Computed example of a mutant assay.
Amino acid sequence: MTCLTYILFSKSINHYYVGYTCSDLQERLRKHNTNHKGFTGRANDWQIVYTESFESKTEAYGREREIKSKKSRDYIEWLISTT
């Protein structure tokens, strides 16, 4: 099973979102772009700007937590620029 850590960007609210999934990323993106109560429900123009692949859910989740722990837009933008 391949899992992904991903970063989304919404131009309308000028925010990044970091997450992970072990299912279809395009379907996950579709869900983020629907009207719901979570953080990503505030916008419907999320785009995938970065992904990393992992062999396990544990690794993908760990990487998501690592990126979020930086609490740094600069770090996220640096990661995106390296692809």
Results as ranks from 00 to 15, higher is better:
Glu52Arg: 14
Tyr16Phe: 15
Glu55Pro: 09
Gly62Tyr: 01
Tyr75Gln: 09
Lys31Ile: 13
Thr58Asn: 07
Tyr16Asp: 06
Ile67Val: 12
Thr51Met: 07
Asn35Thr: 13
Leu8Arg: 01
Thr34Met: 15
Arg63Ala: 09
Glu52Cys: 09
Asn33Tyr: 08
Tyr61Phe: 12
Phe39Ser: 07
Gln47Cys: 00
Glu64Leu: 06
Tyr75Thr: 10
Lys70Cys: 04
Lys31Tyr: 12
Phe9Leu: 08
Lys57Ser: 12
Trp78Arg: 15
Gly41Val: 05
Leu25Thr: 10
Phe9Arg: 11
Thr51Ser: 11
Phe54Asp: 00
Lys37Asp: 10
Trp78Asp: 13
Gly41Pro: 07
Ile80Ser: 07
Leu79Lys: 09
Arg73Tyr: 11
His15Trp: 06
Arg63Trp: 09
Ser10Lys: 01
Leu4Ile: 05
Lys31Asp: 13
Ser53Gln: 12
Thr51Arg: 09
Glu27Pro: 00
Arg28Thr: 10
Asn44Ile: 13
Glu59Leu: 14
Tyr16Thr: 09
Lys31Cys: 11
Glu59Asp: 13
Ile7Lys: 06
Thr34Gly: 12
Gly19Gln: 08
Gly38Glu: 11
Lys11Met: 03
Tyr16Met: 06
Asp45Cys: 04
Leu8Thr: 04
Leu29Ile: 06
Ile80Thr: 05
Thr83Cys: 10
Leu4Ser: 07
Lys57Asp: 07
Ser10Val: 03
Val18Trp: 01
Arg73Leu: 08
Ser56His: 04
Thr5Glu: 10
Thr51Cys: 09
Met1Leu: 12
Arg28Met: 03
Ile7Trp: 07
Cys22Phe: 00
Ala60Leu: 02
Trp46Glu: 01
Tyr17Glu: 06
Asn44Lys: 14
Ile48Met: 01
Lys37Ile: 08
Asp24Trp: 06
Gln26Arg: 10
Thr83Phe: 06
Leu25Ile: 15
Asp45Arg: 07
Tyr17Val: 04
Phe54Met: 02
Leu4Cys: 01
Gly38Tyr: 11
Asn35Tyr: 13
Ile7Thr: 04
Thr2Gln: 10
Glu55Ser: 14
Arg65Pro: 00
Ile80Arg: 06
Arg42Phe: 03
Ile76Asp: 02
Thr83Ser: 09
Tyr17Arg: 09
Arg65Tyr: 04
Tyr16Gly: 03
Leu29Cys: 07
Tyr61Ile: 08
Phe54His: 14
Arg65His: 03
Trp46Tyr: 03
Asn14His: 11
Arg65Glu: 13
Ser81Thr: 08
Arg65Asn: 11
Tyr61Ala: 12
Ser10Gly: 02
Ser56Met: 05
Ile48Glu: 00
Gly19Met: 03
Glu52Val: 11
Glu52His: 10
Lys70Gly: 05
Phe9Met: 02
Lys11Pro: 00
Ser12Gly: 01
Lys31Asn: 14
Asn35His: 13
Thr40Tyr: 04
Met1Trp: 06
Cys22Pro: 00
Tyr61Arg: 14
Ser72Asn: 12
Asn14Phe: 03
Met1Arg: 14
Glu59Ile: 00
Ile13Phe: 05
Ser12Tyr: 01
Val49Ala: 01
Thr51Asn: 11
Glu64Gly: 02
Glu52Gln: 15
Thr58Lys: 13
Ile48Phe: 00
Lys70Val: 09
Lys57Ala: 13
Ser56Cys: 04
Phe9Glu: 05
Glu52Phe: 04
Tyr16Glu: 08
Ala43Met: 02
Tyr16His: 15
Glu66Cys: 02
Gln47Ser: 05
Asp74Asn: 15
Tyr17Trp: 09
Ser23Gln: 13
Glu59Gly: 05
Tyr75Ala: 10
Thr21Pro: 06
Asn14Glu: 14
Leu25Val: 15
Glu64Ala: 04
